[in-house]
Design a protein around this nucleic acid. Sequence first.
DNA 1: CATCAGGGCCCTG
DNA 2: CAGGGCCCTGAT
Length: 320
Amino acid sequence: MMKQKLKKVYSKVIFPSAPYNFDYSVHNPSHFPAPVVHWESGKLWFSFRFENKLIGIKFTNQGITTKPEILVEFYYKDRLDKEYTEKLLDELDYKFEFNKDYSEFYNKFKEDKLVGKAIEKFSGMKNFCIENLYEYLMIAILLQNTNVKRTVNMTKAMLENYGDLIEFDNKKIYSIWTPKNILRIPEQELRNLKVGYRAKNFLRASEDYLKMDKIYMRKLMDNELKKELLKIYGVGPASVDYIMDGVYHRKILNVIPPWESKIYSKLLKLKTTDTKEIMNFLDKNYGKDKSLVIKYLFMDLAWKHKLENIEEIKKLLPYT
DNA sequence: CATCAGGGCCCTG
DNA sequence: CAGGGCCCTGAT
């Protein structure tokens, strides 16, 4: 495990296209807490691996939703050349959707009975994803077949033993281990951290990951991309949905996990909690926009709960 | 104390 | 295509 202090080596002010709501576009209150990122209103610190360099990145909001402006700062041990910083800024534009346009979706459903209000309130919320494919894969494995509490414990143990720790701007932040480093660890050593059979999955998935052509994958059509991802050991129908939506910004919603069916039912004001019936309702009313509809409704609920700590929602979102 | 479900997936028959 | 096994943890 690597530990290092990084210094500020680059800063730039960027102007995402309006509407852009900073807090809603860099923080998701429904994600389980992991010390790979730190968010405060108007600010975000995170670790980011890009082209074999581990960078500390800080965003500071300097604008408003209708006139967005963000101060972006890079922290690293050495100076970064211009070519690298420009490529990294492009990558961040992709990861955070600074310039993605959701106006078509907004216009189509702003009068909609169910989602209209959420669209108004969350106008300018982008589908950001800080993790890259590898990190997201590891998180998917940490989420499988367990509850959130255990996921949090396993993630912490793995990061403390095999993650890289960087310190910048007075924040200590982990980065998920790299495939090459974890492949040197014997399976039994991982198992000692009480990750169970996931020890094998971390290793097998890391091997598969190294074989994949990551650049080529971004350009694939949804069904082709899905086929590629399913080749990775440990990735099944549930994880593939999360990865396609998060890492690749695809509008995907094929699986409703049983534990989420109660939430969906509430969000959509339905009587049933049967996943098939819920999916039929979504397909009929929202078609290819169903994933966005769910996202806006879900975020509305999650943020409301984060700010107001609503007892009734606590039962539905046990990790918040 | 024992039993069992819990944000799945792999493998076998 | 159905169903058993995998691991640990906390709830009952």
